[in-house]
Write a protein that binds this DNA or RNA. Sequence first.
DNA 1: CACTGTGAACTTGTTCACAGCA
DNA 2: TGCTGTGAACAAGTTCACAGTG
Lengths: 208, 208
Amino acid sequence: MPKAVVSRLSLYLRELQRVIGSGKSTISSTQLGKMLGVTDAQVRKDFANFGQFGYPGIGYRCEELTENIREILGTKDRLWPVALVGCGNLGQALLGYAGFDDQGFKVEVAYDVSETIIGQPLGDLQVRDLRHLEVDVREKGIKLAILAVPAAAAQRVTDQLVEVGISGILNFAPVTLVVPDSVSIAEVDLAIQLEQLSFAVVKQLEKE
Amino acid sequence: MPKAVVSRLSLYLRELQRVIGSGKSTISSTQLGKMLGVTDAQVRKDFANFGQFGYPGIGYRCEELTENIREILGTKDRLWPVALVGCGNLGQALLGYAGFDDQGFKVEVAYDVSETIIGQPLGDLQVRDLRHLEVDVREKGIKLAILAVPAAAAQRVTDQLVEVGISGILNFAPVTLVVPDSVSIAEVDLAIQLEQLSFAVVKQLEKE
DNA sequence: CACTGTGAACTTGTTCACAGCA
DNA sequence: TGCTGTGAACAAGTTCACAGTG
């Protein structure tokens, strides 16, 4: 199965939630595809990887499809506890960021190594010493971590995360992390995103 | 040309900067490829899209290659002025985030629409009323914007950005933005990234 | 000799086109 | 009729393998 499929599933989900909000109860592959700029065949093929969710002549029932996608992504009837590691500027903002909760994720613990930050209240949490990581992770069954530490510390902290059994890391440090195959990484590098835009803009200017 | 090439260019650049920092002056496609998990042929093909940068028998000169990539991405000898739109939690953190400057981007202005935020100092800037957008963008020659407003406002603000001539938008709102073809969008949706991890983790667990 | 650059082979991912169903 | 599900055709992207070069 193409791995771009999974990221499209997330996008379908996002659109479906909007569609449901607007009161529609079914949607065709053509309509759903248009919303994110893919063909109708693509939409159907994507879902076909996981089963048969549609109704010929009708389309897809929004509520039902939503549940099916959640099931596939692993966020149905489940709230993933997440550890936030690094409570500087970015970490703090991420904690404040809404958007997570209703998608099935909840930041349960926040860590830092700086004496001045440890113990501070942050949202409805209190920043904890990274030393507690191992015990907390075991106790709370945490599998996912958000890594918002400085680049220089990223690999070292990652090694600790892997050590205590974290299986997925959302990495904000501009560094290629080395992890075992059993651990997944998602990367967000803001400079890289801006570079992509820069390239696109320069190319566009040339075209004119 | 495959469009994944451009994002790999950014990654090559990131690694090269590390390599240069460690004192190496040349690097082979094999070495560079290993750093981000691609084949040596891939590395060479990627660069071949833009010219001939390597030296048979030697490899690539790191400094030179870095400059060439910057040239391609449009960040060589140039500092892109960027507008930050939305100065809530996330917006503020993004402003504080380092990483931008030395990559050729500088947030020059920050906007909000909330009376309580407008006028507040933020880093070495002062939050401005979004109404000034048009004049500022023209005066400062701004082409790129970071959009960190609530989902509900995202499309409306985007329309304004497009209107005043912004050509690239880094979007943090969990919404598919509609823009003309001449405008580029890069998306960062944190919930989607976590969903990708959730899927990967669930799949991994099944495997065991 | 160690490496790049590149056409040709291959693999992966997308679209087409139509059978089958409500 | 309006739509899904899907094999078959096609397109895009990646790897191979080797000629060419300092």
